[in-house]
Simulated assay, not measured.
Amino acid sequence: MTRRGQGEPPADATITGWLRSRPERLAWAVSNRPAEAMALGLIDRPIPRVLCDLRHSSLPLDPRSQTAVRMCLALSGVTRQEVETALADRAHLLQTVLGLLEAEQ
């Protein structure tokens, strides 16, 4: 979880504060280490797979992919907070998915 310019993560219980103050590192942690993130109390449930898979997709999404993403978001019951947490390090993707999530409602 070390990243240039952000320093070493603390070794003790202050790791949660360290992660919460670095949204990009938090997004990586909840997407790639969901069990640890849940154990630390950073998330209540694992981030739905659709959001983890979207982190590696190319943009812009074609209409067929947008429809599939909308359906997956609806079926998984993804909240806006979960989207913001999981995609904080992917700004353009975050805006795209929030647009799809709001269009669904």
Rank of each mutant, 00 (worst) to 15 (best):
E104M: 15
H92V: 14
P60R: 05
A88R: 08
R25I: 13
T96N: 05
R49L: 13
W18T: 14
R22P: 13
W28G: 04
I47A: 12
T96D: 04
Q81I: 06
L87W: 09
S21R: 12
W28R: 13
E82F: 00
Q81D: 00
L40P: 02
R22K: 15
E8V: 15
A74N: 07
L59W: 10
A88Y: 06
D62P: 01
Q105I: 15
A39T: 08
P9Y: 02
T85D: 01
G17S: 09
A27P: 00
L100Y: 02
L94D: 00
V78I: 08
S21C: 13
D44W: 04
R20N: 12
T2C: 11
E36I: 12
L75Y: 02
I47S: 07
P10H: 10
P60A: 11
D53S: 02
P48I: 04
E84S: 11
G99F: 10
V97A: 09
R20E: 10
M1S: 15
L93A: 13
T67W: 04
T16N: 06
E104A: 13
E36A: 09
P23T: 15
L19K: 06
A27T: 13
D12G: 13
S31H: 11
P23E: 09
R90P: 02
G5I: 09
T16C: 08
V78H: 00
L87S: 08
P34L: 14
T79A: 03
W18G: 07
R33V: 14
L59M: 12
L40I: 13
C52I: 14
A68R: 10
L100Q: 00
L61H: 03
L87Q: 03
E84I: 13
T79G: 02
E36T: 02
G5C: 03
L101R: 06
A27V: 13
P46A: 12
L73K: 02
D53C: 06
R55S: 06
A37P: 01
T79S: 00
L51W: 04
L54A: 08
E84D: 05
T85V: 09
T2R: 03
A11E: 11
I47E: 07
R49P: 10
R45E: 01
R80Y: 03
V83F: 02
V50E: 02
R64Y: 03
R49Y: 00
V50S: 06
R22W: 12
L54R: 03
Q66K: 10
R70F: 08
A91H: 07
P48K: 00
R64G: 07
S57H: 06
A29S: 15
L19N: 12
G7V: 10
P60Y: 01
Q66N: 04
V83I: 13
L87T: 14
A13N: 08
L61I: 14
L93Q: 11
H92N: 10
S58I: 15
V30C: 04
G5W: 04
R33P: 01
A74P: 07
R55T: 10
D53A: 12
P9C: 11
I47W: 14
N32P: 01
R64L: 08
R3H: 05
E82I: 05
R33C: 07
R80W: 03
P9N: 01
A103H: 06
L54T: 02
G99C: 01
R90W: 01
D53I: 03
R55I: 15
R4M: 09
V97N: 05
H56G: 14
E102W: 08
